[in-house]
Simulated assay, not measured.
Amino acid sequence: MKKLISAPETVVADALRGLALAHPGVRVDHERRIVYRAEPKDYGTVALVSGGGSGHEPLHTGYVGFGMLDAAVAGEVFTSPTPDQIHAATIAVERGAGVLHIVKNYTGDVMNFEMAAELAQAARIDVRAVVVADDVAVADSLYTAGRRGTGTTVLLEKIVGAAAEQGHDLDTVHALAARIAASGRSMGIALSGATVPAAGSPTFELADDEIEWGVGIHGEPGRERQPLAPMPELAERLVGPLVADALPAGDAIVMLSGLGATPLIELYGMLAEVAALLEAVGVRLARVVVGETITALDMAGCLLTVLPVDAELLAYWDAPVETPAMRWGR
């Protein structure tokens, strides 16, 4: 294993020290491994808390700031944060209008966020949760009951973050989050496994001529292994399952994320193929995001996310945002 790390057990702590140095717009609680907005919201506004296992950067710590999250809780690599961490973040960011927990559908994340919410509610803080389960690859996986939570999480944090920033109440913000979680769809392809520092070897091995179709962002198995194919065929394998899952025609935000080891030249080429396929079935690319937005350490491959949108959702998407990994309009 060749990694730019001090030691496997300090990877997360070291990364958070660097994040704090690089981005003065966030504040890091290094003991609890929580990233906060440096400037809290005004009192009377809904706060947003998310988090999960590290290794998916910039998710979630890179999305803390104006127009998105109030706090992100960092677990160990591919491991859920603890209820105590999540509870501490919830208490710290609450501004008198309640807190929304944004949770990816993995068993550990769901359980620990539920426990943290119970603790906060015992302290008379109104906490709601939305669980993102957007991966159409498999109905259940090694770590979930139901679909896995992946790329829609990024889009949800941006759109709902704008609504909270504009002063909407918790009922409105929660309903908006639930609507997005229910309509986003994702599908991924892996060309290689991810190397977890503590393990020192890839989570799975692929031959030079193989891909894992429908892989999870922790290296979980997908639908099947297939021979590597030209990019137009791979694009069809990404788009086809989304269309088969009743993807409606109309405007959409389309996000193509590298999984950690795929260069932009390849992502842009894949986007061109994906866009043609989507437009052929009536899906218009109203907004496009390309790059590493949700990753799986050093996995080669990509994740396609499509979120149907209307004028309201696009207005929230276009609203100003300023975080380490996403910023415009300020």
Rank of each mutant, 00 (worst) to 15 (best):
K3E: 08
T10N: 15
V11Y: 11
A15F: 14
R17V: 12
L21E: 13
L21F: 08
D29I: 09
D29E: 10
D29F: 07
H30Q: 14
R32M: 08
V35C: 08
R37I: 05
R37D: 01
A38F: 09
P40D: 11
K41R: 15
Y43R: 13
G44T: 13
V49K: 04
G53M: 09
S54N: 07
G55L: 09
Y63D: 02
V64P: 02
G65C: 04
G67L: 12
L69G: 02
A74E: 01
A74S: 15
G75R: 10
F78W: 07
P81C: 10
D84T: 14
T90L: 06
T90W: 01
R95A: 15
A97Q: 07
G98I: 07
V99K: 04
L100Q: 01
H101C: 06
N105D: 04
N105V: 01
Y106N: 11
D109Q: 05
D109M: 06
V110G: 09
V110M: 11
V110P: 00
M111C: 09
Q121S: 09
I125V: 13
A129H: 08
V132I: 15
D134R: 04
V138T: 14
Y143L: 04
T144R: 15
A145C: 12
G146Q: 14
R147Q: 15
R147T: 10
G151K: 03
T152K: 05
L155A: 09
E157M: 15
K158A: 06
I159N: 01
V160D: 00
G161E: 00
A163S: 13
A164G: 01
H168Y: 13
D171T: 15
D171W: 09
H174I: 03
H174R: 12
H174E: 13
L176H: 04
L176V: 06
A177S: 13
A178Q: 15
I180M: 12
R185Y: 10
S186Q: 09
S186Y: 01
I189K: 03
S192N: 07
G193D: 08
V196D: 15
V196S: 10
A198V: 12
G200D: 13
T203M: 10
W213L: 14
W213V: 04
V215H: 04
H218Q: 11
G222S: 11
E224G: 00
R225K: 15
P230L: 11
E233T: 00
L234W: 00
A235M: 07
G240P: 03
V243E: 06
A244L: 13
A244V: 08
A246D: 15
L247F: 08
L247M: 10
A249C: 03
G250D: 12
A252L: 11
L256M: 06
G260W: 10
T262E: 10
I265Q: 10
L267N: 05
L267G: 02
G269W: 01
A276G: 11
V281G: 08
G282E: 12
L285F: 05
A286L: 06
V288H: 06
E292I: 04
T293I: 11
M299V: 10
A300P: 00
C302R: 03
L303F: 02
L304I: 10
T305P: 03
L307A: 10
L307T: 06
V309N: 07
L313T: 02
A319P: 06
V321K: 02
T323A: 07
M326Y: 00
M326G: 00
W328T: 06
